[in-house]
């Protein structure tokens, strides 16, 4: 672990998690987890089912509000209810087990919906502010400068469409742009879900068992795409049951058990030479 850690230590911290706990009434799912995610890291979380892997991942972007603990992202604590969580979620991409493509939108719209909507909202806010500045300028001696509007509505839409097409081209689904998700295969859906998250230019991506709902023959295409994205330097936290993939792509492997981190280290350390008896037992059972 040390060698890896030294290399990673030089990179900036993307996500810093302190003492996360989560309970559903009497059921304590997470019992205090600390994790520091640095830029460029690919962290794979393994563990028996029900150990809280998915809950932990969903806590990272507050889809589940943690019961206690801190999640520091961009200098703010996401666990704090006062923080504008929407602003931060834009920079935390999430890929779900069940794809969750919007059924009522075409593939293209699925990808462009959020970026376009957010950019247009900002544009509207700027225009309203400018309007008030203009009114104020009537009475001011020193005229206040207007906010600069860089792109018009048309340009915003065109840009996000172009971006979406470029991403679709990358995964070879350009011709499906105007189809509805129900016409896609599972593997195609998940790949679209991944580029939908990518279209927001996230700082970190979270994968919640991205291949668990797929037919075996489609797992490969999805894993290849994730690996490609990882190779481009994306920071990732992945919950998966694909051990081979974990070993190949991970820079750090975390073994979770009963809501705490049981063991962590480089893939070779954890897979080949596990120290924790529970980890040993887990690998013996599945490998």
């Amino acid at each position: 672990m040390n060698e890896q850690a030294i290399i990673q230590d030089e990179n900036e911290i993307v996500l810093d998690v302190y003492g996360i706990t989560k309970s559903f009434s009497d059921n304590h799912v997470l019992n205090g987890i600390d994790l520091t995610v640095r830029k460029g890291e690919v962290i794979v979380i393994l563990g028996p089912s029900g150990c809280g892997k998915s809950t932990f991942l969903r806590c990272l972007n507050c889809l589940e509000d943690p019961t206690s603990g801190e999640i520091i992202f961009d200098g703010e604590n996401l666990a704090d209810m006062k923080v504008d969580i929407n602003k931060h979620r834009r920079k935390i991409g999430m890929v779900f087990q069940n794809f969750n493509l919007f059924n009522n939108k075409t593939v293209l719209k699925n990808i462009t919906l959020a970026p376009t909507h957010i950019a247009l909202k900002e544009l509207r806010a700027k225009k309203i502010k400018n309007f008030f500045i203009k009114i104020g300028n009537f009475f001011r001696k020193n005229k206040k400068e207007l906010l600069i509007i860089e792109k018009t509505k048309k340009e915003i839409i065109k840009e996000s469409n172009d971006n979406a097409y470029a991403l679709l081209r990358r995964i070879g689904l350009e011709d499906k742009a105007n189809e509805y998700p129900s016409t896609l295969s599972g593997g195609q859906k998940q790949r679209v879900a991944i580029i939908r998250a990518l279209a927001m230019n996230p700082k970190v991506m979270l994968f919640d068992e991205p291949t668990s709902a797929l037919d075996p023959e489609m797992v490969g295409e999805v894993l290849n795409l994730i690996k490609e994205v990882a190779d481009d330097g994306m920071t990732m936290v992945i919950v998966t049951h694909e051990m081979g993939f974990a070993r190949e792509v991970a820079t750090r492997v975390i073994f979770m058990d009963e809501g705490v981190i049981g063991e962590q280290g480089t893939p070779s350390e954890v897979f080949d030479n596990p120290q924790n008896p529970r980890t040993k037992q887990f690998f013996n059972a599945i490998l």
Binding site: N61, L63, N86, K87, H88, R89, R90, K91, I92, G93, M94, F96, N98, F99, N100, L101, F102, N103, N104, K105, L113, A114, H117, I118, A193, R196, A197, M200
Partner: peptide, 21 residues
């Protein structure tokens, strides 16, 4: 429920996720 969660995870607000999705 995943439809709503996916919209929220993309940074859309409660109202937007409801109205659009």
């Amino acid at each position: 429920k995943g439809q709503f969660e996916a919209a929220r995870a993309l940074g859309l607000g409660y109202g937007t996720a409801m109205i659009k999705i």
